[in-house]
């Protein structure tokens, strides 16, 4: 398939993190993976010991099967070979994501995020209204 050319005026991106990318130009494939265990502990976290990936099912689970999509014969007619965008403002790109100015043939991205909260004492809803 013919690819169009992107013409961009101005781009502003604040931050990029964790297996993410900002790309100017064309690419063929993009296959990022990110595995995250985010621990929030009351009083602060001193060590990452005891938080191994193999401990949590989330990191070994396979996505449920998506039924095969039917084959579609697609024809593209680019009557105008250009794409114009004047201004782009992105605050953040994170966890196996991408912002690209240009064409990208194939994308296969995976992100796994496990959040853990550790509280010293269970908080009671009624304690708050006093």
């Amino acid at each position: 398939m013919d690819k169009r050319v992107a013409h961009i005026g101005k781009t502003r991106i604040n931050s990029i993190a964790y297996s993410s990318m900002f790309e100017i130009g064309d690419a063929n494939t993009f296959t990022p993976t990110s595995r995250v265990i985010a621990v929030q502990k009351e009083g602060g976290v001193e060590t990452d010991e005891g938080f191994e990936f193999d401990q949590y099912e989330l990191f070994s689970q396979e996505p449920s099967n998506v039924p095969d999509s039917l084959t579609v014969q697609q024809k593209n007619y680019h009557h105008n070979p250009n794409i114009h965008v004047e201004n782009i403002d992105v605050k953040g790109i994170s966890a196996s994501s991408i912002a690209q100015l240009g064409s990208l043939n194939h994308i296969d991205s995976v992100s796994r995020i496990k959040h853990i909260r550790i509280l010293e004492k269970e908080q009671n809803q009624n304690d708050l209204i006093e």
């Binding site: 398939m1 013919d2 690819k3 169009r4 992107a6 961009i8 993410s20 064309d26 949590y56 989330l58 990191f59 689970q61 996505p63 593209n76 794409i83 965008v85 782009i88 992105v90 605050k91 953040g92 790109i93 994170s94 966890a95 196996s96 994501s97 991408i98 912002a99 690209q100 100015l101 240009g102 064409s103 990208l104 043939n105 194939h106 994308i107 296969d108 991205s109 995976v110 992100s111 796994r112 995020i113 496990k114 959040h115």
Partner: peptide, 23 residues
């Protein structure tokens, strides 16, 4: 924000497969 296996693309594409596990 573009987060957890997401995409913002200005251009052409053939296939996209985005997977995200979240707990």
């Amino acid at each position: 924000g573009v987060a957890s296996s997401s995409i913002f693309l200005i251009g052409d594409n053939e296939t996209i497969k985005l997977t995200s596990f979240y707990d």
